[in-house]
């Protein structure tokens, strides 16, 4: 997962006039199989987008939301000003680390992790077994309010995703 993240970040830095060369470095079969698994039909995409929009409306100072699979593939996003593919991969890394920490402590299932910075917050919530929800917010975020509003949203996204997406 971390390797996937680093690959993505490296790809970001590469000059854009050599896309064909960069594409050759990546094994063709793996991303394609993954992509097939992740593409979510419009029937799921519509309620997903509705959940994300609703969450943004309900919690002040939220600047971006995205849903990704646990292996870091972007599923749905509403994140102006943020590269969503990279953020999805980083979120998956964050989720994976959180799950390992929780597993090491044997303290049940991972629920969420909040990263606080001097100028904002990033929170990643587990959404069922197959997906995650990441919320980006400004420094004035009411974290407890976000917890209260986003946990049920993550659970509903988990149900939606659980029905359609099964990672390899």
């Amino acid at each position: 997962m971390i390797r996937a993240l680093l690959d993505l970040l490296r790809r970001e830095q590469e000059p854009s006039h050599e896309p064909r060369h960069a594409a050759q470095d990546i094994p063709q079969d793996i991303p394609q199989t993954r992509k097939r698994g992740v593409v979510v039909d419009t029937e799921t995409q519509i309620p997903l987008q509705a959940e994300l929009r609703e969450l943004r409306l309900r919690v002040p100072y939220v600047t971006g939301v995205l849903v990704a699979s646990v292996d870091g593939m972007l599923i749905a996003e509403d994140t102006p000003g943020i590269e969503p593919e990279v953020f999805a991969a980083m979120s998956a890394a964050q989720l994976g680390l959180g799950q390992q920490i929780v597993a090491a402590l044997r303290s049940g299932d991972f629920r969420e992790t909040v990263t606080a910075a001097t100028n904002g917050y990033v929170a990643t919530f587990a959404a069922g077994q197959t997906a995650l929800l990441t919320v980006v917010a400004g420094p004035d975020l009411n974290v407890a309010r976000l917890h209260h509003e986003a946990r049920p949203v993550a659970a509903r996204i988990g149900q939606l995703m659980g029905a359609v997406y099964h990672p390899a």
């Binding site: 002040p60 004035d140 009411n142 407890a144 309010r145 917890h147 209260h148």
Partner: peptide
Amino acid sequence: TIAAAGNTDVVR
């Protein structure tokens, strides 16, 4: 805990 979150918005 919900009251705390909500009343935070009141105070702010």
